[in-house]
Write a protein that binds this DNA or RNA. Structure first.
Lengths: 100, 100
DNA sequence: CGTGTAAGGAATTCTGACACG
DNA sequence: CGTGTAAGGAATTCTGACACG
């Protein structure tokens, strides 16, 4: 896991980096679009990947997409990716005749 | 400038990442070994490069080095690097006969 | 010199709610 | 539905100082 995935950024900085209000950022979490870590005290910690994701979300919101649509779209992409990986693994196994 | 150089991490997280006390981290800044940014409110913001540097400093402290020695050692390395770059630039200019 | 700690205050973040639409 | 805001409290950070060595 690289630095991009480390959850170390507080919401104030994320707000500056993305231009989104803290309110919006918390709301997108409530709508299951983003999953920050928490410190013991309860303060949210984000990664740079989260920041990129928030910018992506902001663009889609601007395009008039609703939060549940963004979430569904994301799930579809996940599924596609899974299928792709399964197929790839199957082909690899067949090619090299790997079992287990 | 990559994510590694972005000053976005608060001192509490840096303390966790490095294992150093906040006191030590602030002290190394006082001794000119590290240069965090500040938010408008005055809270320190560090980058992952700073975190790496702090770990490096911690190792040298463990080896019994004093803060001014670490600072001097660093300056020497900087100077070496400068000389190296000047020489390289000189050679390039000579080779391609570039002026200005 | 390097670091811990208690002290008081300021900046930051959190949650739940009301508002508007 | 998405977002702003005021409210009260809790977590986080800041500085300057005293202590020890």
């Amino acid at each position: 896991m690289s630095y991009k995935d480390k959850k170390v950024i507080t919401i104030g900085v994320v707000s500056e980096l993305t231009g989104l209000s803290e309110r919006k950022i918390r709301y997108y979490e409530e709508r299951k679009l983003i999953y920050p870590d928490r410190s013991k005290g309860g303060t949210r910690k984000y990664s740079f990947v989260d920041v990129e994701r928030l910018i992506d979300i902001a663009n889609k919101m601007e395009d008039g997409m609703q939060t549940f649509e963004i979430r569904k779209q994301e799930q579809k992409l996940m599924k596609k990716q899974e299928v792709r990986e399964k197929m790839l693994r199957g082909q690899l196994n067949a090619a090299f005749n790997i079992r287990k």
